[in-house]
């Protein structure tokens, strides 16, 4: 029975029109954006412009998700997830399918954004993400199924946003949905209780996933395996302390982790600056052979200095925005 239903809401051809049973709003399917365990998401035209419509198989699962989206709209101030526009049923000959319409977020996947712009963006995007998580946690919720697939980077100004909030769970309950690589239970490093540290573990795994796009499976070594993987990549080594703390559940809230990520970013800038500052004085005491290198590296030092200055300025700007 479910297999027939599934084929019905998957692969809807573009141009398919649907009208809600309760609110009578018309939608016209443009294309499929993706599909998951509970249904398919389509880009659709509506009287309000382009929207994303999720059509589900199971009314229970869809209703749960809608509940979450509704609560999101109650979180004051910043918009966290995509905003909810409509909830309705679509009646067809094959049966009735629940669906909801939400804001359509246009952007790049986390991986393609970082591949294009460079790894120095990892820290900045994570700072944004941690700020959002902190607000979510304070509102009494835990994201749960946090992974690159559920994130999107939108432009002007660059901002990381949540795409699918279906796994969001009330604080203190058990996590509804998870993906093994980002789940501390899978790695033997904690429970599946919805608490801030559960999400922070996933944030650390997202950073690891960026450097290991193909992911990897657990051996029986637990934290030791993850530590070794972190140390293998220079980009991750820079954040080793933060990552290890997050993986071991040492941060009680997102704000603490955010602070440490920021200090990692600025420390790495300082260390570049410092080492280059020191070099010339030391070199003066020593003799010639180094001199050639010094002149060569001068241009590089300048770019580094300039680059890190820009980065710092951007972080400050972000702070001003998020505070």
């Amino acid at each position: 029975m479910t297999s027939i239903k599934k084929s019905q809401v998957c692969n809807l051809p573009s141009g398919t029109k649907l009208i809600g049973k309760w609110h009578k709003r018309p939608y016209k399917i443009v294309k499929e954006l993706g599909n998951g365990a509970t249904g398919s998401v389509y880009l659709a035209e509506s009287p309000l412009g382009l929207v994303a419509v999720k059509i589900g198989l199971n009314s229970m699962a869809i209703t749960s998700e809608v509940n979450v989206l509704k609560h999101f709209s109650k979180v004051q101030g910043q918009i966290l997830g995509p905003s909810l526009i409509d909830v309705d049923d679509w009646v067809t000959n094959e049966g009735t399918f629940p669906f909801y319409a939400m804001e359509y977020l246009k952007g790049q996947s986390l991986f393609s954004f970082i591949n294009g712009k460079g790894s120095e963006w990892i820290g900045i995007l994570m700072v944004q993400l941690l700020g959002d998580l902190d607000r979510l946690h304070q509102a009494g919720w835990v994201f749960g199924d946090l992974k690159p697939d559920n994130l999107i980077v939108v432009g002007h100004p660059t901002r990381i946003r949540w795409l699918d909030v279906g796994g969001t769970t009330l604080l203190g309950r058990s996590i509804k949905e998870y993906t093994e690589f980002f789940d501390r239970g899978y790695w033997g490093l904690g429970t599946r209780k919805a608490e801030p540290s559960y999400d922070l573990f996933s944030v650390a795994m997202i950073m690891i996933n960026i450097c290991y796009p193909n992911r990897f499976e657990k051996n029986q070594e637990g934290i030791k395996q993850l530590k070794e993987r972190i140390q293998r990549k220079p980009v991750l080594r820079q954040y080793e302390v933060v990552l290890m703390n997050a993986l071991q559940g040492k941060y009680g809230n997102a704000q603490l982790m955010k602070k440490d990520v920021i200090s990692c970013i600025s420390k790495s800038k300082h260390s570049i600056v410092d080492s280059h500052k020191k070099q010339p004085t030391k070199n003066n005491e020593k003799q010639k052979p180094v001199k050639v290198r010094k002149e060569k590296s001068k241009g590089i030092i300048e770019t580094f200095l300039f680059g890190s200055f820009l980065l710092l300025a951007y972080i400050l700007y972000l702070f001003g925005q998020t505070m």
């Binding site: 309760w22 009314s59 209703t63 809608v66 509940n67 909830v87 009735t96 629940p98 309950r173 058990s174």
Partner: peptide
């Protein structure tokens, strides 16, 4: 049944179901 309720009411019922499951 739950499916016969308008979506708004359905949400409230589902919260009870989720709560019980937990």
């Amino acid at each position: 049944e739950i499916e016969d309720l308008p979506p708004e009411k359905r949400g409230q019922v589902m919260e009870v179901v989720d709560e019980l499951g937990e």
